[in-house]
Structures are given as C-alpha cells and as structure tokens.
Write a protein that binds this DNA or RNA. Sequence first.
DNA 1: GAATAAATTGACAGCGCTGTCACCCGGTTT
DNA 2: AAACCGGGTGACAGCGCTGTCAATTTATTC
Lengths: 338, 338
Amino acid sequence: MTKATIDNVAALAGVSIKTVSRVVNKEPNVRQSTRDKVLKAITELDYRPNLSARSLAGNRSFVIGLLYDNPSANYVIDVQDGVLSTCRSQGYDVLIHPCNHQDPDVAREVWDLIRQTRIDGVILTPPLSDVEPILDILMERQLPFVRIAPTVRKGLSPYVETNDAEAAYDMTCELIALGHQRIGFIAGHPDHKAVTHRFEGYRAALVENDIALDESLLVQGYNSFESGEEAARALLALESKPSAIFAANDDMAAGVMMVAHQAGLEIPGDLSVAGFDDTPVAHQIWPSLTTVRQPIQAMAQKATDLLLKQLKGKDVQLPASMLSSSLIRRDSTGPALR
Amino acid sequence: MTKATIDNVAALAGVSIKTVSRVVNKEPNVRQSTRDKVLKAITELDYRPNLSARSLAGNRSFVIGLLYDNPSANYVIDVQDGVLSTCRSQGYDVLIHPCNHQDPDVAREVWDLIRQTRIDGVILTPPLSDVEPILDILMERQLPFVRIAPTVRKGLSPYVETNDAEAAYDMTCELIALGHQRIGFIAGHPDHKAVTHRFEGYRAALVENDIALDESLLVQGYNSFESGEEAARALLALESKPSAIFAANDDMAAGVMMVAHQAGLEIPGDLSVAGFDDTPVAHQIWPSLTTVRQPIQAMAQKATDLLLKQLKGKDVQLPASMLSSSLIRRDSTGPALR
DNA sequence: GAATAAATTGACAGCGCTGTCACCCGGTTT
DNA sequence: AAACCGGGTGACAGCGCTGTCAATTTATTC
C-alpha cells in the first residue's frame, strides 16, 4: 500500500523485473500481450518507479537543472513556467539554481551541482548563456545543455533566441513615424549581451531614416528600475531634450516614467516612452507602456524540448530556434510635439 | 578524476567506508584523528557523495518540495529565494512544484510527487497552506511539512505567519489620522484566507475610531490587477465616493491607481490609495504606493529552517513563528480633502 | 588488576532499479 | 536436416551509499 516496488509488479504480472523495467522505460522488444499484463499490474498496484534507484542504477536522474542569474528579474518566473510545464509532461523534474554570473566560482558551483545531483542536462538563461567557464565545464563533462539567447560560441549547443534587434528596429521606426527625431536610448546591462543587441536595432532604424546618431542621447543602463531613473534624469537634463525615450527593458522604462512624472511631464504629450519585454509592470503603470512582447515562456518550453530530445538520444540539429517578438502599442507613446 | 566514490576515500584514508560515511554525515563517535584523516582524503579526492545513492540507501533525498499556487504572484520569487538560500547553506536542494489549489486532484498530484521523488519534506505557501486534502496526505504519509500563513488546523504543523490583521489595522488608522472617513476596502481572494484576515484589521480600526462600517465601501477583489480596477470602478461610481481606498494587496492597489488616473483623479489629492505586500510594483508606479512590507523572504527562510530542523530530528515546538510587517509610507496617501 | 562500561570501527546486507549477457523459441537459410 | 537468426525474456551483478550489528579498542570502576 505504502509502496509498490518493481518486484511486486513483476510478481503480480508473472514476469521478471527486467521486463517490467522494459515496459516502464518504453523499450522495444516486449510482446504486446506481455506489455499489457505489466501495465495492468502497474495500474493495479499504483506503482511509481523510485527515482533514486533509477538514477543510481541507470546513471541518470530525470532531473534537469535550470540556471539563472538574477532571481528578481521578471522573466525568471516565465522561464520557470515554461521549463516546468514541458518537463512535467515528460516526467522530468527541475532543480532551480540561481547563481551569480560575476562570481569567479560559478563554474565550480555548477560543477558541484552536477556531480552531486547528477542532473541530466542544463538550461542556461542570460546572462549565464554566455559565461565561458560554465560552457567549458559542461562541454568537458559532456553534459547536454541548451541555451536561451546566447551570443557567444553559438555552435556549441542548441539554443533558442528571439529577433531582439529586429523588434528594437521596429519600435524605433514606430517612434520615428510618430515624428520623433530625438530619441533617447537606454542600453541594457553590458553583461546581458542579448539585451545589448537591442541597441543595434535602434541604430539601424536611425540610419535607415537618415537620422544622425547623437551620442548624448545614448545612456548606459543596468536593467534595473533605478538605473532607468538615473538615465532618464541625465537625458532630461540635456539642453536639447529627447522627445521620446526607448529603454532596453521595461523596468528601466518604468524608471523613466517615474522621473518624467516627477518632473511634471505629460506622457506621451511631452515625452513618449517605450520599453521592451512586456513584463507585468508594463500594463500596470500609467500610462500603460508601449513595449515589445517577448515569448519568454515559449522560448523556455522550446529550450526544454530541445534538451529533453537530446537526453532521449535524438540528435538535435544545432541550428537555432528563433521565436519572434511583437510590438505592443499602448498609451505611453504618441506623436511628437511640433 | 571524473568521480571519486566513498570507496576511494576509504582506501586513501585507510578506513572502512562506513567510517567515511560517518564523517560525511557528521555522526558522533569518530575519533578526531580519524575524522581528520578522512576529511583530508575527501579534500584530496574532491569527493562529493552521490545523492541518489544516499537517497536510496538512507531513504531520504536531501531534497524538499516547495509547493505554491500562482506562479505569477509576486511573492513566489521571494519565497523561492528564501527557501533556496536556507537550503543551500544546509546541503539541501529544492524541487519547485506549482499546482492549482482548486484542482480536485491536487492531493493526488502531491502524493505522486512525494512517492516519485522521495522528497524529505514540504513547504506550503498560501493558499495551499489551507488545502485540507493536501494536509491529509502529508499527515498520512507522516511527511514533515511547514506552512506559511496557514489559517486552518494550525496545530497540525509548524508554521510561520505575519501579523496581517495588525498591519491592516495600522494602515487604516493611518488613513483615518489623515482625515479619511470614507475608506473603501478591496478584499483579497476568498481562498487566500491570510489575505482575507486583512479585512479584520480594517474593521477593527473603524470600530476603534467610531466610524460605522459602510457595506457599500466593501468590494470583493481577487488579488489581481484587473480585479482591483473593477473594484475601483465600482467604488468611484458610488454616489458618496470614498476619499481613500485600501486594497488588500499591491496588484489591486495598482489597478485602483490606473482607474483613478484614467478618471483624471489626482493621487493623493483626490484619492488616497494604499496597498499591501510591498511588491516591486509598489515603488515603480507613480505616485509610489503606500503599503505594508511583508518579510516574505524571511518567512520563507524561517519556514525552511523549521523544516530542516524537523528533518534533522530536532523536535520543533509547534507554536508559530510570527514575523512582523511594517508600514511603508510613500506618495499615494495624503490628507483627506476638507 | 580484573571486570564492566563506553567509545570506536568495520563487515556485510541490502535500498530499487538498470545494464549485460545468456537463453529460449519459432522461423529462415543453405 | 543442420546451421543460423533475431525477437522476446530472465538471471544476476552491481550503482554508491547507509543501517545493523558484531568486533575491537579504550576508558572507568572497585
């Protein structure tokens, strides 16, 4: 009652434990009638294989690791969600492991994690997707892994990404179409390379529209609300102020709006603001934020899918999986004052 | 190199594997000199015990389960953070498991989780802390668990909670002190009993200050931004409008502010708004939200601590661990118009 | 100093499962 | 008819560790 083991199932079905094992693992070469007998016994006893035993004997754990850096980042929850849903449907569990990408010992930390838990594979989210020592460890250990939005050594592993630059390009064009000529840009954290790429889109749009890139309109941000505020203060203190500010993520955009409000500026009347990510805050602030929706959950699902495929021995062709973002027009952007 | 087992360590240290096991598990009755020899060997070989083997042999897994309901709720991240940090420092891992408290099969789901993964204990967050079938399963299995903010059968397990009612009382008094007489209250999701308790504090404060409780100022919310918007629309449509609205959580308060802004109301000039939780959004919206800070991370840590203590056989005295919240005054509240 | 108690250590049998390999059997191939 | 084949099955040896219990060594007592 408390626990049925493979022996019980074997006894009830009148076969050897090895055969039960075959059925449980969906291995071929079991006669259909035998398979049915076993399945019936499994149901009857409500048998669940013991993961630890499987792990020990089979040298795999049916657990994958999800590594991420900044737990407070809004996307973490979405990533977890995507990974969990895919794992659950395939009988895997997830061990979450936040770690600091700047810690010189991250690689060691990951190594310990792997050895202790015997996780079968790993999913890396930015900025960990680009931390070379971690990549090295994983390669050395030959542990399957999939990266989300990597920017370095892309040939190394399967990965998924979005068309960030393109979306940023679209957003910038949108602002230009609204009549904005002086568009401030708040760049993302330099370690988050993928976020950095958004700048490329911004620049491309300016070039495309024959607008000179004004260095003074470029501010380095660090993905946080506070860094957005700071950047906004700098931009709004400019002699020739921007009429729109495009922040590389929503948190920073929210910071911009806060500063604008405090300065008595109307949004979007006096200043248009655009963000990136479509985190929950984007539609909870006033006015609601024009931004770019990232299919984060879908990316995580896709990444997990790729990982589990690898674990099951299917060869995953390296080429990336590209998911596309979409522009969400809300109330924080409007025509430029004439 | 790739892997050192307990045998290798034993061989190198010149003792039996059992002695190594004792050292690793910090068991008593090992001579100090022996212990040192073993520790030296462990360091030298960079030995890490294999969790699966430990789990299988010792019938425990060094993994605890963290169950929660709504992954998108802001507090989930904080809870995870608290649980993880405590676990990590004590060599445990965490398996996160979101599940729907309204699903009639939750209990079954939890049961399966337990049997498969052999988790050693469980932490329940609201509203799962109050789901009786889950409690029943855990009791039946005699699996140690700790609840965060439970409201039913408190004698069953150790738990941690905050003084929600008291904080809500303080907040209401604060509003009254600012001159507000008609204070709207948006109640939390009925299934989140702990949130519901906040209403008690509100009521107590009114009674204390001889303000009659006006039923029309009470609206049922469901913890979401949208439900806050809806409730606000109802309250502001009242013939005799409230001059302040106290929402039982920040998301709903943000919804109130959105509606107020859209209606052209000044905050806090025309309407004061207060929330509860101090989620990130609270200081990212404009004007920043007066709210109550919940020590969520600390609660999670405390809960984990209690759980791990239990797992280590230390008897945990049932009495609750009460952590206190604190009122955060920001810009969304101000004196009532006279 | 012998007897007794306590501390220290090791031998060994599993925990529940999978990998290996040998075996059995009916159908083909020479 | 002997040799061969491959699908289907089971016996058995671990995976790396802990629990049990007995053996050995070291205090402690009178």
